[in-house]
Simulated assay, not measured.
Amino acid sequence: MVLATVLVLLGPGLLKSLGSAGGLLPTAECVVETSEGEIALDRDEAQLATTAVALRARGMEAPDTTSIDEAVLQRLADGPPGDAGPSLSCRGSAAQDLEVQQLTATGLTPRAEQLREAMTEVFGEQSLGGFAPGGVDQGHGGDSTHYDGRAIDVFFRPVSEENRRQGWMLSHWLVAHARDFNVQYVIFDDRFWSAHISRGQWHDYDAPAPSNEILRHLDHVHVDVLGGDAS
């Protein structure tokens, strides 16, 4: 109770210093690494920030972000200095009571189709793959969620610094909205995020062929949704 009172009195400046001092906010839903240190966000703030940044990048009208620290918005828009990479992470949480779904006409399950529509609304038309009407049964690993219609690949080709930063902008948005759309995994640029890992950090992704840009997910963001109780 005392700590809560102090936080209210001293405001977001203290939150920033706590976040950068060895991660003293273990219950933060999301964290953005900025030039000013780690800044904690709740889920709504992370969703607002990632959506606004994506819309502004397209020259579209964006929601009001005056409540969000400018350092957060700048980092999400520009990425880390020097090299593209993850800046935002959110805690993972996988729903346990979902029904198993069948393919829709697009070749995606309703959950995956809902996610595709939401991505299009924010990011516009994208270069997509990994699914097809009637489903796909080859071109991916043996247990791939693509075969269940639960996975979408969003391509950012050719592999370049700018395209990697665009891929991370999408990846951050997906992680911030993971609970709303039952996202299970996001894989991009040699890193992955999982709803099954509650701490929510990005982890190194060990591709089966380290020299293969596609298998390392350097040229595309892979996102899949939870499959339900039987998955």
Rank of each mutant, 00 (worst) to 15 (best):
Q74F: 05
R216F: 11
P80S: 05
D97H: 09
A178K: 02
H196K: 11
E45I: 04
E113F: 12
G141P: 02
S198K: 13
T106N: 08
V175L: 06
E61L: 14
V2I: 07
G141M: 09
L88R: 10
A94H: 09
H172N: 07
R165N: 07
G11Y: 13
G149S: 11
E99C: 02
L48Q: 05
W173N: 00
S67F: 15
F156M: 04
H196N: 06
A178Q: 13
E33D: 11
G139I: 08
T27M: 14
D153A: 04
T51N: 00
G19S: 07
V32E: 10
T104R: 10
V221H: 10
G130W: 13
S35W: 14
M169D: 01
H203S: 10
P80V: 03
S67T: 14
V72K: 01
I187M: 06
G141T: 12
R179P: 00
A46T: 00
A132H: 14
F156L: 02
G200S: 06
S211I: 07
E29L: 01
D69G: 00
D180A: 14
L98N: 03
T51R: 11
A40P: 01
F181T: 04
S17I: 11
Q138S: 15
A230W: 15
Q47I: 00
R58W: 15
D189L: 10
D69A: 02
Q102P: 00
V225Y: 10
F131M: 09
F192I: 05
G142M: 13
S89Q: 15
P158S: 02
D64Y: 03
A176P: 06
A46G: 10
D42Q: 06
A178S: 14
D64H: 01
D64M: 08
L41N: 01
L73A: 04
K16T: 15
L25R: 10
D153W: 12
C30P: 07
R164L: 09
A84W: 08
E29H: 02
L218F: 14
R111W: 13
E38C: 03
P86Y: 07
L55W: 01
A118T: 00
W168L: 03
M1Y: 11
S171M: 09
A112N: 13
L55K: 07
A209S: 10
D153S: 06
D64L: 08
P63W: 08
G228S: 00
G227I: 09
R116N: 03
A176N: 14
V159W: 12
A151R: 09
T120E: 11
L14I: 07
G167C: 08
G11H: 10
A54K: 03
E29T: 05
D97L: 02
M119W: 08
L24W: 15
Q102C: 05
L98K: 05
L226C: 05
E125D: 12
R111C: 02
P63C: 08
R165V: 05
A77L: 07
T109L: 12
Y205P: 10
G139Y: 15
Y147P: 13
I39V: 11
E113A: 03
V72M: 04
D148R: 07
